[in-house]
Design a protein around this nucleic acid. Structure first.
Length: 108
DNA sequence: CGCGTTTGACCTGCGC
DNA sequence: GCGCAGGTCAAACGCG
């Protein structure tokens, strides 16, 4: 089910130029960040309790983000198709870890 | 050298 | 209408 989003062309208005300036501002906003030795004593990480759902859909998944919700104890990992460019898979996988038991087998 | 992984910031949607 | 939580992206670092 490949539903391609049609890129709505915006009308030639002064806002177009402004959009470019805004884009530049946004890019500049995300200043370069340097990863310090914060996780020096950390292990591989999430693999300890979360395994990459390689064949869950037939494609490989690449983790593109991780967010801690609920303040703490709940970590949600976000996966995206590694070969999305080749498969056209524009879907994302969200694996939420629980504080206690509850293996990530019941992926949506 | 390229790709995957990790982290922090920003934006959007929903709830109050 | 504003605030908070959730979700997405981009850059840097490490490993193959």
């Amino acid at each position: 089910m490949i539903v391609k989003a049609e890129p709505q062309l915006s009308p030639p208005s002064p806002a177009f130029a402004d959009s470019q300036a805004t884009a530049t501002t946004i890019t500049a906003r995300r200043a370069k960040k340097r990863r310090s030795s914060a996780m020096e004593g950390q292990k591989s990480s999430w693999v300890d309790f979360t395994n990459v759902p390689y064949e869950d859909d037939g494609y490989e998944w690449r983790k593109y983000g991780e967010k801690k919700i609920n303040g703490t104890s709940y970590t949600r990992s976000y996966f995206r198709c590694t070969y999305k460019d080749d498969t056209g898979c524009l879907a994302t996988k969200h694996v939420q870890q629980k504080d206690s038991s509850d293996p990530p087998s019941h992926l949506q």
